[in-house]
């Protein structure tokens, strides 16, 4: 696994490393989406080594801005099946290796 990743990384470096935030799925309104995306990027940059702290920060901010209860998952590898309140879901990649799910339920 480690070897495989290393090779992949090498290939990636040969090509281009994409680190821009990439929204995979979202049904938020445009403004909310932008705000949430910026927040996620900020949080992931601030706590680049601590996903838990990043998730906490995102959750707290989202709760403050859009009202609780928000749930946030930040990680490099996981699977999920969630129920969410419509127009409150954001699933995005950031930094090239992180996936972030933010939803309200």
């Amino acid at each position: 696994m480690g070897d495989g990743e290393g090779r992949e990384k090498q290939e990636e470096t040969k090509k281009i490393i994409h680190t821009y935030p990439l929204i995979r799925h979202s049904d938020m309104p445009e403004e909310m989406k932008q705000e949430a995306m910026e927040l996620v990027v900020t949080a992931c940059e601030k706590y680049s080594t601590n996903n838990e702290a990043a998730a906490k920060m995102i959750k707290d901010e989202m709760d403050k801005k859009f009202g609780p209860p928000f749930h946030v998952v930040v990680g490099e590898g996981f699977g999920f099946e969630i129920s969410f309140e419509c127009t409150n879901l954001l699933y995005m990649f950031s930094g090239g290796n992180l996936a972030i799910v933010v939803w309200k339920c």
Partner: peptide, 24 residues
């Protein structure tokens, strides 16, 4: 009740990589 939806996905490093490649 407010409308609800379900969403599921798998996050894996190669999934992220592929998504970036595709988007690029």
């Amino acid at each position: 009740p407010p409308p609800m939806g379900t969403f599921s996905a798998n996050v894996l490093q190669w999934v992220i990589y592929d998504a970036y490649q595709e988007d690029y």
